[in-house]
């Protein structure tokens, strides 16, 4: 608990002076990003509150360590490799091709499905054209075979054969 709460000092900024309100502002206060009014409140609070002083010290120590660690990071290249750069520029100039290259698997699947459907449709069309019964009125065909008479009454290719006979 902060001192300003425990020692019962009169506080005008009762809401903002609570430790839980002050502590999130400590970072901005330390990096001088806080407005002058709020900075003054934080400063005043820090002067009195031991808890927040400890928190501020912890934050400062953590920040120092973070900065040191950041500087000690292995030196990374500041540039993309030429190969990657070329790839990006190509993607800029050929957006459609780039999209296709990226979604090669998806496009392959779609292409395969379209091919299968097309072949199936073509085969069906050819079958219907060459082997399907002739459409039209049902006909009656009489076949005389050694004295027996068979009567077939249906739509059939036989019609054309019969018509062609003399």
């Amino acid at each position: 608990m902060s001192e300003d709460k425990t020692n019962g000092e009169p506080r005008s900024e009762k809401k903002i002076m609570r430790c839980e309100d002050i502590q999130p502002l400590l970072f901005d206060y330390m990096s001088r990003e806080l407005g002058e009014g709020r900075a003054a409140i934080v400063r005043e609070h820090l002067r009195k509150c031991k808890t927040c002083q400890v928190v501020a010290k912890d934050i400062q120590a953590t920040l120092d360590l973070l900065h040191t660690a950041s500087k000690a990071e292995p030196k990374q290249t500041e540039r993309l490799t030429d190969k990657r750069r070329k790839k990006i520029v190509w993607a800029f100039t050929h957006p459609v091709m780039s999209w296709m290259a990226k979604h090669m698997f998806f496009i392959s699947v779609i292409a395969a499905i379209i091919t299968i459907i097309s072949v199936a449709a073509f085969m069906r069309f050819m079958l219907e054209k060459h082997f399907a019964p002739i459409k039209g009125k049902p006909i009656t065909v009489i076949i005389v075979n050694r004295g027996q008479t068979n009567m077939i009454q249906e739509t059939s290719n036989i019609q054309s054969e019969v018509q062609q006979r003399p």
Binding site: L80, I88, P95, W99
Partner: peptide, 16 residues
């Protein structure tokens, strides 16, 4: 490098 390349390609090609 992978992440940056991906970001450039993903974002910029549609917006350039």
């Amino acid at each position: 490098q992978d992440a940056v390349e991906k970001a450039f390609i993903q974002l910029c090609k549609n917006r350039i």
